[in-house]
Every structure is written in structure tokens, then in C-alpha cells.
Write a protein that binds this DNA or RNA. Structure first.
Lengths: 214, 214
DNA sequence: GTCTATAAGTGGATAGAC
DNA sequence: GTCTATCCACTTATAGAC
């Protein structure tokens, strides 16, 4: 007990975080199975001893990582919702009212590695019921957040939708992921990736929004 | 040269097919890495010797499998298109004009294992440029086929779309995959899986089709 | 808390008998 | 064509030194 104030605990948490970050990169690049504990430790700047001092197994680390990623995404969306409802005045609602939805979806994983990590998590969630349930839960929460935003924007801008807001949100999430995936596959740089998802979402928005009786 | 007529060649092809089938199952269940050559051989009823007599490596088998799956999907869609354009008379175009699109999308991978295999192929395509290019090519061909069908149906039923047929087809493919994935994740049986994708596509159809001036 | 060393097991792949 | 036997690289995980 040389440490009364939890300094070692802070160090420990920093080590955990570095290991998690390194693991996230490697899981994205090579997949859960192909990424060895050795490689994770090497990238994080530790040896295996440190790893097994912090995590029981590689699977436990992966579970922890999934949780953190999910919480981060949900928190990002929640933050946007709160900011939106705090402001009486919205950002400019011009020709592209759903621009704000785009920004939200871009918050979390709008780069090559982020997409890959999400895909890796997803396929593991398909095989592992425990992970699957967690995945669906965070997906539902995300969807709910986006629904909230979509509803707010619609009301503020005086837009009418051709489908319920929840379906609209779901559709936007789906299209975003689809475009992002095909973008990564075609070797698009992060900038072009962003452009492609944007255009995809704009098309959906156009389809969803009831045209004004011009 | 005891074989002049290619009987051994046929046997060989049968062996290859069994190995490919067993591998497809295991890749779907456990993923490319986790599925050992040993396990593949065991399920196919051979030993490793037979495997390495037919394939250079596990990766080569996977590539071959990807090709076969892609060709099968494209062929299924092409077959539908041909059948559709051969008939002057369409199947009943009642309340649900895009039911036929549903049937097409269900042709190829409408069960748990099929979805999993597709997902496994997809994530590998995200990491391997060669696979990625092949994946995008088959995806484009598939999309083109569905576009063709959508166009045919629209013309025959006198429907107007709110977006170009190609975008409509893309959207249906995307929504189908999304629903199927979440269905598998929530542990849905094959029957319910089919129901969920159906409903998803019906919603998209409703959104896409220009409502008649009632 | 982190290191080294190592145990115990599994993987892909090859050689040669049948 | 398929089998058995085997090699070797590499993996996870543990034990114990520092």
C-alpha cells in the first residue's frame, strides 16, 4: 500500500486505455482472430505481462472495447440532441435541412479504421449472442437519438415527412453505413468517404421529405 | 494415365465441391481465421492430404468460394430477369408490385448461414483489395439486375418512381441486407427473417412509388 | 505493474506411403 | 487421390523475477 490516493490506479487506467487503443487499431486492420496479443502489446508499448495484468483474456478486452465504442457513439448523439434542444435557435436550415443528421453520423466512425472496427464488431455480434444483444441495444439507442433529432429538425423547419420519424432515422443510419462500407472497399480516402456518405444521405432526405406545394 | 475419360477428374471435382461446401458452413459459423483446415476436412469427410491436393492454401479456397457465391447470386438474378422479359404476362401485380423484387433478393442468401457467409466475405473484402474489387464488381452486377427488374415491373404496372430506378434498386438491396443482418442478430428463425426483410422492402417500395392521383 | 521465460497447445503446410 | 506422420511457426496463457 504505497499508494493511498489512487495514483497507481490512474497509471493502470492509462495502460488499459493504451492497450485498448492499440487493440482497436489491430482489430480493425486484421480482425479479432488475426490480431495477436503479442502484436497488441507491441503497438501499445508493453509486453504480454502487462496485458494479462489488465485483462483476463483477449475476448474480455474485446468486450470492453465494444462497450466503450458503443457508449461513445451513443454519447455523441445524445450530446447533439441536448445541444439542439438547448438552443432555441438552430443552425442554418437552408436547402439542406438534414445536414445536421449527417454531422451526427460522422461524429463517430467517419474514417477507414472506424468503419473497419465497426464491421469487425458487427460480425462478431452476429456470432456471439451476448455481443449481439449489446449491439442491438446500442443500435436502438442510436436510432432513437437520431429519431429525436430528425423530429426536432422537422418541427423547427416546418417539414413534413412521408414516413414516421423512426423509420426515417433507421433509413439514414442504414444508408450511411452502406455508403461508408462501399466507400472503404473502393479505396476511397477519408475525404471522399465523407463526400459519398453525405451524398447518399442527401438523396434519402430528398426522398423522405414531403415536397412543399410549390 | 489409367483414366482416359476424365472419371478421376469428376471425382476430383466432387471432392472440391464437398470441401467448398464444408468450408462455406464453417466460414459462416466461425469465420475465415477460426475455421481450421482440419475442421473443414473433417466436416467434408477427408483428411488434410486431400485438401492440399485440391487447393494450394486456405486463402485460395476462400477466393474460389467467393467467386462461386458471387456467380451464383448474379446468375440467380439474371435468370429472373430473363424469365421476366420472356413472359409477356407478369405474375399478378396487385397491391404489392415489388413482391417480385423480394423474391429475387431471397433467392440467394435468405437464411442465417447465408447471411453470415456474406458478412464474412464482406469484411474480408474490406481488408483485401483484390477481394474488394471482386465484391464491388458483383455488387454492381447485382444492382444492375435488380434495376432491370424494377424498371420492367414499373413499366408493366404503370408505376412512377420518385427516384431513378438504379437508386431504387440500390436502396432495396441496402435495406434488405440491413434487415437481414439485424434479424440474424436478434436470433430470428429463418421464417421470421424472411418476414422482416419482406416488411422492410415493402416500406421502401411504398416510399419510392409515386402515389397515384387518387 | 511490468518484465522475461516458458509451458502447452494449435495452426498451416509438406513428404512419402498406400 | 487420399491417407498418415511430422515439421515448424506461432499462439494464448501462466509463473515468477524484478
Amino acid at each position: 500500500m504505497t499508494d493511498v490516493l489512487g495514483a497507481t490506479t490512474r497509471r493502470r487506467e492509462a495502460t488499459r486505455q493504451k492497450l485498448l487503443d492499440a487493440a482497436a487499431q489491430l482489430f480493425a486492420e486484421e480482425g479479432l482472430d488475426a490480431a495477436s496479443v503479442e502484436a497488441i502489446c507491441e503497438r501499445a508499448g508493453f509486453t504480454r505481462g502487462a496485458f494479462y495484468s489488465n485483462f483476463e483474456t483477449k475476448d474480455e478486452l474485446f468486450l470492453e472495447l465494444c462497450g466503450r465504442v458503443a457508449r461513445a457513439r451513443v454519447a455523441a448523439v445524445r450530446g447533439r440532441v441536448a445541444a439542439l434542444e438547448g438552443d432555441a435557435q438552430f443552425p442554418p436550415l437552408t436547402a439542406d435541412p438534414l445536414a445536421i443528421v449527417r454531422q451526427i453520423l460522422e461524429v463517430t466512425a467517419d474514417d477507414r479504421l472506424g468503419i473497419l472496427l465497426m464491421s469487425e464488431i458487427r460480425i462478431n455480434a452476429l456470432r456471439n449472442p451476448q455481443l449481439g444483444a449489446a449491439y442491438l441495444a446500442q443500435d436502438a439507442e442510436l436510432s432513437e437519438g437520431v429519431t429525436q433529432i430528425v423530429t426536432d429538425v422537422a418541427q423547427a423547419a416546418g417539414l413534413k415527412f412521408r414516413i414516421p420519424p423512426a423509420e426515417a432515422a433507421r433509413l439514414m443510419l442504414t444508408v450511411w453505413e452502406s455508403e461508408a462500407t462501399r466507400g472503404v472497399m473502393s479505396g476511397a480516402e477519408d475525404a471522399e468517404l465523407s463526400r459519398r456518405t453525405s451524398e447518399g444521405l442527401a438523396r434519402v432526405a430528398q426522398l423522405i421529405i414531403e415536397p412543399p406545394l410549390a
